[in-house]
């Protein structure tokens, strides 16, 4: 508890001292404008764009979770026998339907 208090006090003091010691970032209006080689923008640059790796990330997470379930399954596989094999087969079949769906949606077409 004492360590925590000392650490947090020290962090607060250090942050305060740094903010006093460092020069203030003085960004003028011309410097805050985007660099366009002397050109000017029509709109603000805050725009919505398509993050294309997003869907691929979802597929990755799904299959990583599948691997997580396979470790406990591997532990009981010998004692459970064919029943465990059938259960894992059903699980993988359902997951691969998701894979086919992602394929149809063009998830794997990397541009």
């Amino acid at each position: 508890m004492t360590t925590l208090v000392i650490l947090s006090l020290w962090t607060a003091l250090a942050a305060f001292a740094a903010s006093r010691a460092l020069p203030e970032a003085a960004s003028t209006a011309p410097q805050a404008a985007p660099f366009l080689g002397g050109g000017t923008p029509d709109t603000h640059a805050w725009s919505r764009y398509h993050f294309r790796p997003y869907t691929m990330t979802l597929v990755f997470v799904a299959f990583e979770m599948e691997m997580m379930f396979m470790y406990p399954w591997a532990v009981v596989f010998v004692s459970e026998g064919p029943k465990a094999l059938a259960e894992m087969g059903m699980f993988l079949a359902i997951l691969s339907v998701g894979l086919l769906y992602g394929w149809r949606e063009g998830v794997f077409a990397w541009e």
Partner: peptide, 18 residues
């Protein structure tokens, strides 16, 4: 590209764009 409607950003680039 794929029909997904996204924001359009219009700007003039140059004359000193490297």
């Amino acid at each position: 590209r794929d029909g997904l409607q996204l924001d359009r950003y219009t700007a003039r680039v140059g004359p000193f764009a490297p």
